[in-house]
Every structure is written in C-alpha cells, then in structure tokens.
Design a protein around this nucleic acid. Sequence first.
DNA 1: AATTGCTTGTGACTCTGGTCACGTCAATTT
DNA 2: AAATTGACGTGACCAGAGTCACAAGCAATT
Lengths: 232, 232
Amino acid sequence: MQVTPELLSRFTLLKPLPRQVLEGLAPHASLVRHARREVVVRAGVREDRVCFLFEGRLQGVGHTIDGREVGLYFIEPGDFCGELALFDDNPQPEFVIATAAATVVFLARNPLREVMLNSSSVSNIVGRKLAERVRQMTEQRTLLGLSNIDQRVCGQLYLLIKGGQRQGESGEIVNPPTHQEIAIMLNISRERVTRAFQALQSRRIVRRDGPGRLVIIDLNSLRRFARGEEEL
Amino acid sequence: MQVTPELLSRFTLLKPLPRQVLEGLAPHASLVRHARREVVVRAGVREDRVCFLFEGRLQGVGHTIDGREVGLYFIEPGDFCGELALFDDNPQPEFVIATAAATVVFLARNPLREVMLNSSSVSNIVGRKLAERVRQMTEQRTLLGLSNIDQRVCGQLYLLIKGGQRQGESGEIVNPPTHQEIAIMLNISRERVTRAFQALQSRRIVRRDGPGRLVIIDLNSLRRFARGEEEL
DNA sequence: AATTGCTTGTGACTCTGGTCACGTCAATTT
DNA sequence: AAATTGACGTGACCAGAGTCACAAGCAATT
C-alpha cells in the first residue's frame, strides 16, 4: 500500500526531516498490516528495510540454542526497529513479532541510509535513537538482576507505562502484553507472572479493564514494590 | 600522560583515520592506568570523554535498585566504551570497572564528535561499532534464557574465547574473569559458578594454568554443553 | 449455540539454586 | 615471617520458582 509523506512525518524519527526529503522517501515505503503473532522482521536475514510501527505493539524476541524464547524489548507506536541495517550489512540478531494486530511502515534501507549520510542532523537523530536503544536494553537487563520476581514484574509494568503518565498517581497500559510475553522478558515462567498479577489485583494495585486495557490503580504502590520497599 | 598519534592508531576504531586527523586528536587524549577494581567510567554522570582500552579487561556493570550488581559486558583490549556520549548528552547508564589492572586512553568527546561529523567514513565506523554493541548485548541477554545454568556458564566461557580460536579444538582465556564477575553476568550466585567450574575441571574440559590463564582443553565438549546436547 | 483456540487461573510436587557458614589457598602487604 | 586480603571450594538447609496437569474464562468462528 502507498505511503504519503504526511504519514512518514508522524514518526518521531522522521518528523524533523524537510518536506522535500520525505517526498523522496515516500515511494520507497509501504504500509503493511500484520495480524497478532505474525513475524514482522526475521532473525538471521539481511533485512533491506527498516520497520516503523504505526499502531499495535511489537516485541523483539531471541531464541536460545535449545529453542526457548527470550523477550528483548517492546516497540510502541511511533517507534521503529530493524535499524541495525542502517549501520552495517550483518543480519538482524532477533525476530520481531506483532503482539497485537499491528500496522507498520517498511522503509527501504538504502534511500534512508542516503538521507542519513547526506544530512548530519538526520544521522544525529538515528544515532541518538540507537543510543537510546542501548540504554533501554541496559535498563531491561538490570531488571533481571532483581532476585525478587514480583519486583521484576512491577518494574516491567512500570516500564510499560508511557512516560507521560509516570508522574501521576495512576496510569494505564493499552493492549498489555500477555503473561507469556512478559514472562520471556523477565526470564520467568508464565504461571509465575499470573501469580504476581493475582497478588497485584487482590491488592487493588492493578485492574484489568476489558481485553485491551490494564489500569494501574495505585502507581505509587507499584513503584514501592518495584523498589523492593514493600513485599507482595 | 601524553598520547602519541601512533598509540591512537592501535585502536581498531581509530586505525582507519588519516594521520593528520590522529595528530589533531592526540592532544585531547590522555593515558591512565587503573588498578584492579577501580571505577573507570561512572554511571549517571555526563561523561565528556570516551574510554579506549589498551590492556587489561573492563566490565560494564549496572546496579539494581536494591544494590545488587549486574554484569553487562566485558571490554577487551583494542575495544572502547562510553561511546554513548558521542550520540547524545544523556548520562552513562552503567559503571565501567577494571577487572584486571588496565591501561586506558581517554579521548575527549567533543573533538572526536567533530571528527565523526565531518567524515562520513568515521561516523560509519562508530555507527557500526554501536550496532555491534547492540548485537553483543542481544547475544548476552539470550544466554540468560537458558534454563540450565551450566549451559549458561559454558556459553559465557565460549563468548570469552577470542574469535580466532573458536574454530580449533582447544583455546585459552587470558586474565579470565573471577567467578563473581561471571556470576553477575549470568544472574547466578558466585558459588554456583564455582560448582560449574568444578564440574568442567573434573571432566578435563577446562584447566586453570596459573592465576592469569584458563585453558579450554576440549572446546568441542564445551560447545556441546553450551548447546545442551550433553549435561554436566 | 456449539466449537475451537488462546489466555488466564490454580493446586501439588519436585528440585534447583540461593544463602549461610565455613575452610583453604595464594598473593600481597606489613 | 606474620598478617591480611581476596578468590576459590564445599556442605547443609530451604525458600521459591519451574513444571505438569487441568479447569475456567473469553473471543472469534462455524
């Protein structure tokens, strides 16, 4: 499906680009819908495109040698993935899967790379994004260091709350990941995630609101549990 | 201590730079020796320099909220760290500590950034390195997905063997990390690492050779254990 | 309305890995 | 040489996480 320059400018990475550049990129972009559970980016393949998420949620997943799934990161709308292809020709290290029905824009790698090289402001933006990715991975890895598993779950939920809401007393997570998806992020079993959620729900700290919405009733308590100041 | 352009050119990142550029950078570089256990780069601080490792070994470590140490990556001679400062002004997310007496070259951030922006070939190199870092972190994270802990240890040892030796039937690790340092990389206890090593040593798969050298006697077996094809 | 498929919920059992409390050993300092 | 320090080694105990098995809930489809 065709993509307009306007659509491209909805992404934070591309927004600062001049209109003219966006018009040059648009013909190399295509809009694709992915059903839940579909593979969006393949591991081990030299991808020739970068994937921008318009709506839905994606998850980067790796695989251990014995076939177990490992959750690496979540991608929220407006963000992108597969950006390693912009820097070298090595294959993608991980799969990216749609954890909710997703609309993505694939943008051919080479034109974007050109834009990146010719405009230092663009390569700055891409570089900053990659740096941010490293910080995000570091933060996620640090979560795994917590010995108390309930802490990990609370910490993960906290990371899933959109930045703007983190100040308030309550928040929400739209299209929350399944317990299984959280489990592989935190290196724990699905059942253990369920039990952690049970504890949080019985204490009125979180509440499910239909299939696609998780309400964080008491954000302060969630923070305290994540910090280990209080135990579940 | 003063640094010569020749010294700078010993680092893979800087090697491709023209002599003239290296001469411009040298005045902004300084050579520092760090004793074992010393902090080389601080977390939470806006570092204004990038750290190149000349000899020794460094380890990036994070801290959980409850103070537990988390091992993130090892830095080998010729490699560098603190490169996020080149991309944005946000603080360093992790500490970097010398796990063996180390000689490092600090290179001021801004001059290097200038070089990077003016030469697309240099920004390519830096970008490739950052992409490589992401791959490395992904690989390390995937190790943690292994349910069998002995597998993790074997996998970690395998990663510690320098690339060139991985083909052969045997190998070595110079200045191997302590059990504690491995433990925090793999999210397990120091004692558990010791027990894994006991098992490997009693099966004549690895052997300590003095304080600073670990010999991998049977690399094929190590690989099999890492893959879970055989159990310790 | 029934079926299918996926997610969540829950109990029981097992067993691994963390923790604690030591002891040993080698290297370095005093 | 004695003392100190830090790394490594080892046993015993036990909380807690994984696993298995199955039930229940919910959506989408037939």
